[in-house]
């Protein structure tokens, strides 16, 4: 069944590549969803069935819905796609890609230098996972709960409608600029 693993890996790679190259946000989101599903497949094949489940329900389900919701809310469509198209020139993406390639090459060298290692993954059941979570990692779970709590409060606070608020230094700067502008106009 190695073939399933390689297929899923290839799908994840290609979908991810599409995510970072699409101009339209909705297209990118759909490709990301595909990539996440492929990830779920990989997890399952690695014997982590519960992780695969979470990947689908939370990632591909909840988080992606949030993204799509925001994209729809802001009505990002053709204009954004046009802007991205204008922006994404080889001149722009060449440098970062080379950098990332170098990083990956180093990673490759490090991984390959450690020697071959093949195995048959054993299934780690949700039961074992739950026991580990609520025994050794209890504090981690509590911290994660606090983090989520903070995120909810923070999101509620940040998301409120507010007028444009500038720091006073920036405001002064802006006023100065406006004055300058007026002077040049006059």
């Amino acid at each position: 069944m190695e073939i399933a693993f390689y297929v899923a890996g290839t799908v994840a790679l290609v979908a991810t590549l599409m995510v970072i190259t699409r101009h339209n946000p909705v297209h990118a989101l759909l490709y990301l969803n595909v990539s996440l599903l492929a990830h779920a497949m990989l997890f399952y094949l690695l014997g982590a069935s519960f992780a695969a489940l979470l990947e689908i329900i939370i990632y591909a389900g909840a988080i992606m819905v949030l993204f799509i919701f925001v994209v729809m809310l802001l009505n990002l469509g053709k204009e954004t796609a046009e802007q991205e198209r204008k922006w994404l020139k080889p001149k722009v993406w060449m440098g970062p890609t080379v950098l990332a390639a170098v990083l990956f090459a180093e990673f490759l060298a490090l991984v390959l230098s450690s020697g071959q290692d093949a195995y048959s993954p054993a299934v780690v059941s949700p039961r074992e996972l739950a026991v580990a979570l609520y025994r050794e990692y209890l504090i981690g779970v509590e911290l994660a709960a606090m983090l989520l709590m903070a995120a909810v409060v923070g999101a509620a606070h940040i998301g409120r409608h507010k007028k444009l608020v500038l720091h006073r230094f920036l405001r002064e700067e802006k006023e100065k600029e406006e004055e300058k502008h007026e002077e040049t106009v006059l």
Partner: peptide, 13 residues
């Protein structure tokens, strides 16, 4: 399935 570790890790990388 038989998986080699470095392939998965490289995929992640």
């Amino acid at each position: 399935t038989t998986v080699s570790t470095e392939v998965v890790v490289l995929l992640a990388g």
